[in-house]
Design a protein around this nucleic acid. Sequence first.
DNA 1: CACATGTCAGTTCGACTGACATTG
DNA 2: CCAATGTCAGTCCAACTGACATGT
Lengths: 147, 147
Amino acid sequence: VETGSRDELGYLIKRVQQALRGAIDPALADIGLTMAQYALLYNLQLHPGASNADLARFAFVSPQAMVRVMAELERTGLLIRKASQAHARVLQAHLTPKGIRALAAAQRRVEDIHKVMLQGLSTSRVRALATDLAAVAEQLEGLSSGG
Amino acid sequence: VETGSRDELGYLIKRVQQALRGAIDPALADIGLTMAQYALLYNLQLHPGASNADLARFAFVSPQAMVRVMAELERTGLLIRKASQAHARVLQAHLTPKGIRALAAAQRRVEDIHKVMLQGLSTSRVRALATDLAAVAEQLEGLSSGG
DNA sequence: CACATGTCAGTTCGACTGACATTG
DNA sequence: CCAATGTCAGTCCAACTGACATGT
């Protein structure tokens, strides 16, 4: 099978990301989540009580981008927010029971897709892939912030 | 430096793709190109005379998505199209001299970014990365087409 | 007729910037 | 005053689907 046009990494990254979206989007649509919403819920599970600004940093996006995702999830009752005691301006988010259930269902779907996607790669290959992608991300992130 | 929240591959893919866009977008903006336009020109260089439908297939996107990119590049004179002799409905695209120059300039910028992004990875690591990403893409693409 | 191509139009998603109020 | 947070509003890119005309 042809890989496309070239081994160029940028091309491959885009292709994988697009294929991944194509697989995950419809799977999450059943549950009523978009990828961005899933990512937010996932990070919120890892960091209970995180603020909008916190979650934006975790996802490497602007806080304005996160506001809409957050608002929709709050509106549909998957999370609630209340003012921090320490700083009334900061709204800390928490998953609701409904949010926890939706996230769990979504994670099962996503993990199924992950399994398919990694078929044929050994554990050590997968580990190397993750390590190298993280290294690449850090180099690129240094580019924009550093110069 | 923390890598974020987890080693999850989907997360890393998205993060790399976003960081890559963040680096390439402004570099190409100088030249007056978007990433999609650059990708089209690049594929057109590899496949002179390709049609809109061809280029959509190379990029794994719908022909409708490609139409707008193509129209803009034709409008700004980076490519021209003329009807195929074999099939008048098919419009074959070719880079203009202006298009060739723009693409060359863009490629230099993109290659600089590639160099930075791969700093610290050996040639064999880069090769393994490309191989494994291609494998992952194929698995995912099989998912949507096959069921 | 079937089929591929090209196109227009509308929608969605997810990112961005600018501007502004609030809190500490 | 300054910095961080949260928000609204608008823009942009890039994908999608639906619908339709055209050419073989």
